[in-house]
């Protein structure tokens, strides 16, 4: 257990460092680029406003909030303070709704969509990959190229194809949104049913993409494990094949967890784009409309939230991994 706590502390520290880095990136990148974000904000806001005093007032208001006239270090701390207070400013495109308000609802949708989809895809993909590695033969021969095809299929492409087949042609599912446009979010049966109905296609498209990549990884991992010395030794000790297969899958599956932790960022990125195809009310659609509307506070807030979500999930997976894989504890104890 001592090894584990050391591992845990290390991962926690890493979470802190990466979070700080995420803040810095999110703050610094737009600031360093040519153009003053506040000037951009004001020029957006001032559209249709005729008095220059009004524009000036808005400018000063925002300059105050972002601390634009202060040194860059101080600006950064103002930014961090604002974020921790949940003050991301006011959205332009949905004026006067505060950004934090928009994000709160979008985050819920995104987590509810992506987390189950990635987990289901991960489990299915690993099972398929393991079976392919063990069975070899035609199953493997067919599965590998198919997995390569699917996993390299752009997530948005998969989304579009599913949408066209099942929503536009067959009309089994709705084409867009998170629930019927005529509904008010309440906990009624009708609403839940509508949400589930809208959930199927985005969910499927993320699951399918995840399956392909995981199956390939698991296949290589399992082939590697099947050739490991302990398999030969266990066989010669008379252990039954199905028991050995259990060993192999467990051992191959565990590193796949780290794989999941490392690729979760890429997956979420792809899924975010897939969300936009379905106009799903999550972060993807939010950032799409924010980019279109030049809504700087919203873009900045969404990117930060996505990054932090990914970092936290990554941390949780690693913590769980360390808990189930003795190999990690051992290397830490040394």
């Amino acid at each position: 257990m001592k090894g584990y706590w050391k591992y845990f502390r290390k991962k926690l520290l890493w979470l802190l460092i990466t979070t700080i880095f995420a803040f810095v990136l999110n703050f610094l990148l737009p600031t360093l680029m040519p153009g003053d974000p506040v000037a951009g904000i004001v020029s957006r806001l001032a559209q249709g406003m005729s008095t220059s005093t009004g524009v000036k007032e808005i400018y000063e208001n925002y300059a105050e909030q972002f601390g634009i006239n202060k040194p860059i270090i101080e600006q950064f701390f103002i930014y961090v303070r604002n974020v921790f207070r949940g003050e991301f400013g006011v959205s332009f495109t949905q004026y006067p709704r505060p950004v934090s308000d928009i994000i709160k609802s979008a985050v819920t949708w995104t987590i509810a969509l992506q987390l189950p989809a990635i987990i289901v895809g991960w489990i299915l993909g690993n099972t398929l990959g393991a079976v392919a590695a063990y069975r070899k033969g035609p199953f493997d021969k067919a599965l590998l190229p198919l997995s390569i095809l699917i996993s390299n299929f752009p997530a948005f492409g998969m989304a579009v194809i599913l949408l066209v087949i099942f929503a536009v042609r067959l009309r089994w599912f709705p084409t867009s949104g998170g629930y019927g446009f005529d509904m008010i979010p309440t906990l009624s049966w009708g609403f839940v049913a509508s949400v589930l109905h809208h959930y199927v296609l985005p969910f499927l498209s993320i699951v399918l993409i995840t399956i392909g990549g995981q199956a390939i990884g698991m296949r290589s991992m399992a082939i590697y494990e099947l050739n490991a010395d302990y398999v030969k030794y266990s066989r010669f000790m008379g252990i039954k094949d199905n028991q050995i297969v259990k060993y192999v899958f467990r051992n191959a599956m565990l590193p796949q967890l780290t794989g999941l932790a490392l690729s979760i960022g890429t997956m979420v990125g792809g899924s975010i784009v897939a969300e936009t195809i379905f106009s799903y009310p999550g972060l993807g659609t939010t950032i799409l409309s924010a980019i279109k509307g030049q809504d700087y506070p919203l873009v900045s807030a969404v990117t930060l939230i996505i990054t932090i979500m990914v970092l936290i999930v990554n941390f949780l997976v690693e913590v769980f991994y360390g808990f189930v894989d003795p190999r990690i504890r051992a290397t830490q104890a040394e």
Partner: peptide, 16 residues
């Protein structure tokens, strides 16, 4: 009949 493998380093299932 029993067998002792070439390298014991990886002869045992690491997670058991």
């Amino acid at each position: 009949i029993a067998y002792i493998p070439q390298s014991a380093m990886n002869a045992l299932n690491p997670t058991r």
